[in-house]
Write a protein that binds this DNA or RNA. Sequence first.
DNA 1: ATTATCTATAGATCTATAGATAATGC
DNA 2: ATTATCTATAGATCTATAGATAATGC
Lengths: 219, 219
Amino acid sequence: MPDQPRESRGSHAGNRFDRRRARTRSALISAARALLAEGAAAEASIQEIADRADVGFGSFYNHFESKSALFDTAVMDALDEYGQLIDAVAGGVEDPAEVFSASVRMTIRMMETHPELAQVLRRRGIEQLHADAGLAPRALRDIEKGVATGRFSVEDPRIALSAVGGSILGLLQLESVRPDISGPDAAEQLAALILRMLGLPPGEAREVARRPLPLEPRG
Amino acid sequence: MPDQPRESRGSHAGNRFDRRRARTRSALISAARALLAEGAAAEASIQEIADRADVGFGSFYNHFESKSALFDTAVMDALDEYGQLIDAVAGGVEDPAEVFSASVRMTIRMMETHPELAQVLRRRGIEQLHADAGLAPRALRDIEKGVATGRFSVEDPRIALSAVGGSILGLLQLESVRPDISGPDAAEQLAALILRMLGLPPGEAREVARRPLPLEPRG
DNA sequence: ATTATCTATAGATCTATAGATAATGC
DNA sequence: ATTATCTATAGATCTATAGATAATGC
């Protein structure tokens, strides 16, 4: 079991020991994220990870019990960051249709604005599609809200969540293998498809999908 | 490089040598498929795979150059079988909307009728979503056909394919983590959502999604 | 005689840990 | 004095191959 610092605080709190510790840990997570994004995670040895992080080999075990523990943490870390980016764009929006539209467009554009994050999402997102924490519960809540207000029309919101989330990951995959298909246009098309799926009339779906984004993505 | 049999024919053709060879190869692929379905593929050693296949360790190298070559083959093999099952159900259907409806419902029900196949599809399907062979080109063709006849309304058929395929994988994932959500009802709901996404009016989407399947799945 | 399979093993990793070193706290 | 990091390494895999064995062809 990795040692715990005497007091656990935010990453930049504590004394110099704590900060150094946090830096090492963060370097390992960053290296793991990069490997995840490259698809090289499965083959990477702990030695390679430590080298990438520019950290002594033994330090690994100060922070993680095993490789898979590190990669699990790195996935959660990436999805947390993803959630924050989405919140920054869609957080204050009232209309559930616009929330989804903005989230979808933002996510697809991440292939260019945040490529590493987008690759992690593409490769590992489906496993987290129904997690009890993170983005999924909020998306579910937004679907239910849309149903309650009559804007959406779906029977089981969890099924709709699966379909919405899966279709986003599908387009990330497409853009990943066909780099010629990309950019705002593909994102708007998908947003319109998803809004139709959720029950908006085609014309309205299209209109919402083309509204200006509430905030440009901030990196 | 694994040796080639003197003549390559179908799996049951040739002399007894060829058949024995084919049996060993097939046992390795089956073991790999089972491991893929269990999610244990990443950690499995060649020794474990050979043991599962009830095959001598060295035989592995008669057939595959590496573990990943075997797993790649096993994924293709599973998706081929998947394609055949889908063809059996949707092959003779004319209406593209009904083709998708039947394919979707059949795929979701595979969680019960063909669990191993469904798990492989769930874990590896997204990588094959835009392959040049297999199911993807046929689905793309059906989308284009639907657009040409006015039944579907989408801008870029490849984006629609991503969304359709991804949403199916999303529901497979949901059923995998929440076994209480399953069965024909979930499958019909997703089929209706997908048809709406492709441009059918909600009432019609629902009607098509509930038509009797052209053929019951045959195992 | 030919070919695939099987057994045994050398050599190459790779993981986990022990102990030394460096950085910081008090 | 305390704590994290780093270096070195023992022991445990794991892969790939060589050579023996078993099955089949002709």
